[in-house]
Design a protein around this nucleic acid. Structure first.
Lengths: 345, 345
DNA sequence: TCGTTTTTCTAGAACGATTTAGAAGAACGA
DNA sequence: TCGTTCTTCTAAATCGTTCTAGAAAAACGA
């Protein structure tokens, strides 16, 4: 049962290993009769096709693309936005009979050789919301693995599928300015706050390129507003709750809170509810992404076509006919009931 | 830049390839001085560690476990239950520096050699809600890849992490019986209904082992009830909507609807709302899984520790010290407002 | 001092396939 | 009939490691 290889089958049928290989990979290189005989014998012997590793080694194709997430994989799945991206990517991967390799990005032992990014047998990588300059990106570059990021990078030869973060946020800022908001708190993802204690950050400390750009965008159309940056932890519902609690329970309440992701904004919504505050009346709340739950909650947000983003990344990675290597996706401001005029002071 | 291998580094340093290999894999097999010299030279040459495929071939370890889902990968991500499972599994995978290989299970060309299950370089596989007898399972068995299922299989040597489906459903059935329900519709996952037209099934036509068992469980504690099995498509919100629409708009309305997953039940809830029906009063609704949204919606459901399920599967697959190969997880009936007494006839 | 153990390193054979270049025979056109 | 082109198949090299055995040198014990 064990140890059945191409060679075994070849010997059994009485042909060369090459021919057996061809039977699997290039059916038109041999007669149908022989091919069927080979396949039948293979089945009899319990041989289930060419070994994946060997094939990968020899042909240089792994048949899988890696997906890099920030932080814990577990976090990744808790955000419908990430899940939407994955779904789009998976769709294309499926089309090209390619598997998706989810890679844990434990920041520890990234220096040592034993991390997944180093080890993984992949043909390409999708980089999902990983801060620029992360060591994992260097490793990929070093290994010569093509990568597509969801952020616009600095290098002109880097592939990406992104939105115009500045412009998208500027739209939202304009909306808020028009409503009279001049005191805003922005909720961001931050590793340091993950311990549980919310932190207040400067723009330089944010880290994630997309978050920085969005804040810049808000500044652009809210030039006179005070913008504070707060984080309650990683990008998750609970972090939104904590961040908002910190803000709402302070003496210095803003008139609007902007979550840089919907999950965080929804967390903030929860914190408001608990305190008996009505979004859109007592305090304006806005998010980013437009995940399905945002609509149900009446959350004003900036919609981005996340599933399409995933699809586009997949195409760049897998479809040779896709020539465009830098794609800008459209965004749209979705105004719902969670945003309203700033209360008079 | 390209074509830098172990050999290149070995030659540059003036040692044998084996030694370079040891520098990466068995640091205590060579002097610290030499090891550092090797690593430094490797870095200079732009060598980024042993090639993944070659290593996998030679050592027989792929450094990844596969995850098999039914149907489209995209579906998988739309169910928080599946996502929870993945999160638990990912946690353990991370611990063992192992990647997760998501495998599309396109039922087409499963016969041909070009499907992912055949190709994937994996050390083990987690089988998530795949109907028993699926060809992919045979392929895995054939390849000699250890697999852990989320369903109790028939073979005594198969590993699984499951719940007592019958008992869990029986608990729910008892609750419904006590409330006086004798006319129930069960909403199940079904490929044939995926086209858009809901179907009514017999128990034999259900296919998924876990669904069958749950229905049996309901029968057990609802011996006098009429149980109809309906499907609006794959396991997703939209299918729940369609299935419930079919049921609600017919002449023959039941007094209770049981979704065999919460997403389906929540879909049914949506259909009820549209028709102005209040769950728990006009019609009783119950689900399965207890995903976060279930609590928010006040859905009566059967809770199963999904994340723990994922963790347990990971342990069996990766942790050599885990000896238990068949694990039964506890379940708990969670009664909320969506279930109430059956209206008098 | 001399045998024995330990440390440090190496040669060469796998691992299981794919690829390249080409051979043998069949089919073809004139 | 003879050269040419297809079709069908093969031999041998190669992909980049890791592994098994064992050699050489160093350290050790008495």
């Amino acid at each position: 049962m064990a140890g059945v290889t191409l060679k075994t089958v070849a010997k059994a049928v009485g042909v060369s290993p090459s021919t057996v290989s061809n039977a699997y990979n290039k059916p038109d290189q041999l007669s149908t009769a022989l091919r069927e005989r080979i396949l039948a014998t293979a089945h009899e012997l319990g041989y289930s096709g060419p070994d994946a590793s060997a094939r990968a080694l020899r042909s240089g194709k792994a048949g899988a693309v890696g997906v890099l997430f920030t932080d814990k994989l577990a976090y990744a799945f808790s955000d419908p936005y990430a899940v939407g991206f994955l779904a789009g990517l998976a769709e294309v991967a499926e089309e090209f009979a390619t598997s998706l390799l989810l890679m844990p990005l434990s920041s520890t032992d990234i220096a040592g050789g034993s991390n997944a990014v180093q080890q993984a047998a992949i043909d390409g990588a999708a980089i999902f919301c990983v801060p620029g300059g992360h060591p994992a990106l260097d490793i990929l570059a070093n290994r010569g693995i093509p990568a597509v990021s969801t952020d616009r990078g600095d290098h002109p030869d880097l592939s990406w599928v992104a939105i115009d973060e500045v412009e998208a946020a500027a739209q939202l800022g304009e909306h808020l300015t028009r409503l009279g908001h001049r005191d805003v708190v922005v909720l961001v993802d931050n590793a340091e706050a993950a311990g549980g204690r919310p932190v207040e950050l400067t723009l330089d400390e944010v880290g994630y390129t997309d978050c920085e750009l969005r804040i810049q965008g808000l500044h652009k159309t809210m030039p006179d507003a005070r913008l504070r940056i707060v984080s309650g932890g990683h990008n998750a519902f609970a972090s939104g709750v904590r961040g908002a609690e910190y803000v709402l329970d302070s003496q210095d309440r803003p008139t609007a809170i902007v979550g840089l992701s919907d999950v965080q904004a929804l967390g903030a919504l929860e914190a408001m509810k608990v305190r008996g505050l009505t979004p859109g009346r007592d305090l304006t709340l806005a998010g980013f992404d437009d995940i399905p739950a945002a609509e149900a909650a009446g959350l004003t947000t900036v919609r981005q076509p996340i599933k399409d983003k995933g699809r586009a990344v997949g195409r760049i990675l897998l479809d040779p006919s896709a020539t465009e290597r830098q794609v800008l996706m459209p965004t749209q401001l979705i105004v719902r009931s969670s945003s309203g005029p700033a209360p008079k002071r």
